[in-house]
C-alpha cells in the first residue's frame, strides 16, 4: 500500500489522492521535525535519524561559471561543515544536552521554516528522495541574530514511529560560502 502511494506521488503532475496524501504526509513530517528542533525537544529529533544516517553539509565556494559545476561544492573526500554518521551525531546530542555545552547553554532561539517540498523520486518501496528549502532564524543571548537559508536533499525512510519517517540521509546546501556566524551549533 505504501509503495503504491509513493509510486503515484512521484509521477509528475499526478494529483491522485495517493499523491496528495503522501505530499501532505511528507510536509507534516517536516513541520513536526522543525517544531522538535525549535522547541528544543532534541532527544526526539535525534531519534528521527536512522542508523545509517549521513548528515552532510559541504562547503560552498565562489567559482567562475566555467568551473562552477566541477568545483562549487567540496567533494566527499574534502573538508565539509558537517559530515556525520550516527555515532558522531549522538556525540553532538550529548554536547547539546550538556550543562557545560556553552555554545547552546543558554540555548539559542531558532525558527526553522521549511517549504518548496518536492518529492523527487521513489528510491525503493520504503525510501523517498525529497528536496526542500529552508530558512533558519537564530537569535542568541542578548542580541545575536543569524539567518541561514538553503536546500535540503533528504532520503526519508518509512518508519514505525509517530511521524511515519526517519531521515536516512540529509545533504544540506547552505546559501553562504563564508559562514556569517560565530559557529554552527544548530541543526538544519
Amino acid at each position: 500500500m505504501i509503495d503504491e502511494k509513493m509510486r503515484a506521488a512521484t509521477r509528475q503532475g499526478d494529483i491522485s489522492l495517493e499523491a496528495l496524501s503522501l505530499q501532505h504526509e511528507v510536509e507534516q513530517f517536516y513541520y513536526r521535525e522543525a517544531l522538535l528542533l525549535d522547541r528544543h525537544e532534541f532527544n526526539d529529533w535525534f531519534d528521527l535519524l536512522d542508523e545509517d544516517i549521513r548528515y552532510f553539509m559541504p562547503i560552498r565556494t565562489n567559482r567562475t561559471r566555467r568551473e562552477q559545476k566541477k568545483l562549487e561544492y567540496t567533494k566527499d573526500n574534502e573538508f565539509a561543515h558537517f559530515d556525520d554518521d550516527l555515532t558522531m551525531m549522538r556525540g553532538r546530542q550529548r554536547k547539546l544536552m550538556s550543562d557545560v555545552g556553552w555554545s547552546e547553554n543558554p540555548a539559542s532561539r531558532t525558527r526553522h521554516i521549511v517549504g518548496n517540498v518536492l518529492i523527487e523520486e521513489e528510491l525503493s518501496a520504503s525510501e523517498l528522495s525529497v528536496v526542500s528549502s529552508f530558512i533558519v532564524y537564530r537569535n542568541r543571548l542578548e542580541r545575536q541574530v543569524d539567518i541561514f537559508a538553503g536546500e535540503r536533499l533528504d532520503v526519508l525512510r518509512r518508519a514505525e514511529n509517530e511521524l511515519g519517517f526517519k531521515i536516512a540521509k540529509r545533504t544540506i546546501h547552505i546559501d553562504q560560502s563564508t559562514i556569517l556566524s560565530n559557529n554552527l551549533s544548530l541543526f538544519f
Binding site: N77, F79, S181, N182
Partner: peptide
C-alpha cells in the same frame, strides 16, 4: 592538504 577551505566569521 585535505581539499577545501572553511571560512566563518567571529565578531
Amino acid at each position: 592538504v585535505i581539499g577545501g577551505m572553511q571560512k566563518w566569521v567571529i565578531p
